[in-house]
Design a protein around this nucleic acid. Structure first.
Lengths: 253, 253
DNA sequence: AGAATAGTGTCTGTCAGACATTATTAA
DNA sequence: TTAATAATGTCTGACAGACACTATTCT
């Protein structure tokens, strides 16, 4: 086959889909939007849209993220800014994943701190945070039951599952869990992030020893807080270290 | 923005590019093909080609792999077959990565045992195994020097670097290094794979203890061999375990 | 007082790094 | 014999899991 004959390539539509994860009320949640048109009209789906002619993939993902949430994705090099972590997840291109035409979707993963309320791109009430556990449970349960119990549109349940798995494994060996936290946070809040993402309970004392003993992971921010009740806890900021070595161990493997 | 308006999407070309890695003579090598036409005519590039209208991304990657090497990508679930490991790597979509048109490339990573000789798809002499170290060294060295010292075409040096980094990190916590070995291999041969991929020397005794002590990683194949000279070594096959826990540790981190 | 959370310390088993020693072949 | 590789064993330090104990707040 002659490679790269510009006149003989099948045209594809290329989209970005976003797996936006956050931790709300001790549960891992994902941002979903309600579809206003067929196919899958009325069903929940991951936010996303077409890649424009002049933007790259990360740019398109960042633009969609800003349109849906008002968040700005920040460069992983920068210390903080009120941005979320954004990275490419995987690409989905089954010929029949969209019944209308050939669509290749480059999924991206976003880890965001808890946000007040989702803000829809065009129509206001069509976006919400949904528990990942519920979204993935209805995936295997097959068809729709009543109202909001239908699985996600297209192959979005698969994409969501891949994104959740990426997040679960990546907080083991990186400092990415801090992307779920506000700029200043306590060790207990960080631990509850791990517990929500992994769905397990961690020993508070061993966790404290681990995260405070890893150089560059946390830097003291100076103050204390009693957000959770009990003895006041020190506030920390995310340190410069991005890799955790040795990693945080996930129980029950 | 109205999502999914089928009549108003910019058309993209979608290709798959392959990072095919193997270990030859104690060095990590990648398969490269010489470009026969502009742009980058005469330069080396990663093998790849257009995704066809009716195939999915992994299917396109597997087809290109077979065309270039005769290898068949095997399902990771199956024990062996003479196939190579294939997985999606990442997607590259900068608007200017191909000077002629908008091309989004879904790169795939292939780990293959040492193969006798590369077999080109169309023209015979245009494919070869090149040392990864040399390919990546000339990336930063800038422009072409003499003859074969030019960097890879397009953004393929970046893609190659990402693929190598994926392979280097993945053999830490998975049994994927066995994909570089023939169906039956010795502990020493497996150790030399790790040494070539990581570019370090490992203690043979600690390595032996680690791999033979991890349940399900290696299963004895029965025979012995003296391929390397010295005392005959036991032959092993890859076991069913796909995850290494605890992982193999990479020195000097 | 009692409950809740934060923070420090101790003990123990696992395991990686360093290195000694023996076994078995080829040249 | 010498060199090369394979295989097993020992010692030690780092660290995770389990858990006792103290500190500081709110109700």
């Amino acid at each position: 086959m002659s490679p790269y004959d510009p006149s003989a390539f099948p045209p594809f539509a290329v989209t970005v889909d976003l797996v936006v994860l956050t931790v709300r009320r001790h549960a891992l949640c994902a941002l979903v939007v309600r579809r206003g048109e067929p196919p899958f009209q009325g069903r929940w789906a991951l936010p996303g849209g077409f890649v424009r002619d002049d933007e790259d993939l990360a740019g398109a993902a960042g633009r969609e993220l800003a349109e849906e949430t008002g968040l700005s994705a920040h460069d992983p090099a920068l210390p903080t800014g009120n941005g979320a972590h954004l990275e490419q997840l995987a690409t989905y291109g089954d010929p029949r994943r969209d019944p209308r035409m050939r669509v290749v979707s480059v999924a991206h993963l976003v880890l965001a701190p808890d946000l007040p309320a989702p803000r829809a791109g065009g129509d206001a009430n069509s976006a919400r945070w949904a528990s990942v556990e519920e979204l993935l449970a209805m995936r295997d349960a097959g068809g729709a039951e009543e109202g909001e119990q239908a699985p996600l549109a297209f192959d979005h349940a698969t994409i969501l599952a891949d994104g959740v798995e990426r997040a679960r494994s990546k907080i083991e060996y990186s400092s990415l869990a801090t992307a779920f936290c506000p700029p200043e946070f306590t060790v207990g809040e960080l631990r509850r992030v791990y517990e929500a993402v992994w769905g397990v309970a961690l020993d508070p004392r061993n966790f404290h020893r681990k995260v405070t003993g890893t150089p560059g992971f946390l830097v003291p921010a100076g103050g204390t807080t009693t957000r959770q009740g009990g003895r006041p806890a020190q506030l920390f900021r995310a340190g410069g270290a991005t890799l955790l070595n040795p990693p945080m161990l996930r129980p029950e493997v």
